[in-house]
């Protein structure tokens, strides 16, 4: 419900602002790379219609996380419409394949409409899909040593019981008068 309302308001304001200021639509080309210590992300901002580079566009860079986008840098484009930002390689990937999604976002800019562009970086820092909980006291599967000790103790005790019962059986077997057994 709240979502819808926001959406409507957003729609209206977008329409009004577009009409009033006649902002341009932007086209951002993202170039991604990395040096030894940093990821680099370069954005080239052009006018979508004329393809001319746009100067003075403030861009914020983000990386995609599970529950939101995390800011990693920002800046304003130069005369060639280019802006470069760096963020550390230590920022981990966003999925188990090592894909890191970088975003370039334009917000409340005088030159162009709000826009957002996305590119995927293949990082080496991926994390495993599964890190099984190690067999141990807290896990579902018992550790080997416990299984061994447990079943050894159980076997020893119940084995002794079985032997005691076997002795009882032998008591019966060593009776001379067998008449009692079959009745």
């Amino acid at each position: 419900m709240a979502n819808k309302k926001n959406l409507l308001i957003a729609l209206l304001t977008a329409g009004i602002s577009a009409m009033a200021q006649e902002k341009k639509d932007g086209l951002i080309t993202l170039q991604l790379g990395a040096n030894d210590t940093m990821h680099t992300v370069t954005a080239q901002v052009n006018d979508l219609a004329t393809k001319a580079p746009l100067k003075g566009v403030e861009i914020t860079f983000y990386v995609q996380r599970t529950f939101g986008v995390m800011k990693v840098g920002n800046g304003t484009t130069d005369t060639t419409g280019v802006i470069t930002a760096e963020f550390p390689l230590s920022i981990p990937a966003g999925d188990t394949l090592g894909n890191l999604i970088a975003l370039a976002k334009v917000e409340d800019n005088a030159v162009i409409n709000d826009t957002i562009f996305r590119a995927t970086i293949k990082t080496k820092l991926s994390f495993p899909a599964h890190t099984p909980v190690k067999a141990g006291l807290i896990s579902s599967t018992p550790p080997l040593w416990l299984q061994l000790v447990f079943w050894l103790v159980v076997a020893m005790v119940w084995g002794s019981f079985a032997y005691a019962l076997y002795l009882v059986y032998r008591i019966k077997a060593s009776a001379s008068k067998k008449i009692f057994i079959n009745q």
């Binding site: 008591i171 060593s174 009776a175 001379s176 008068k177 067998k178 009692f180 057994i181």
Partner: peptide, 9 residues
């Protein structure tokens, strides 16, 4: 168990 008190038993 057929107890008759013999030495084996």
């Amino acid at each position: 168990m057929g107890w008759e008190g013999n030495p084996t038993q």
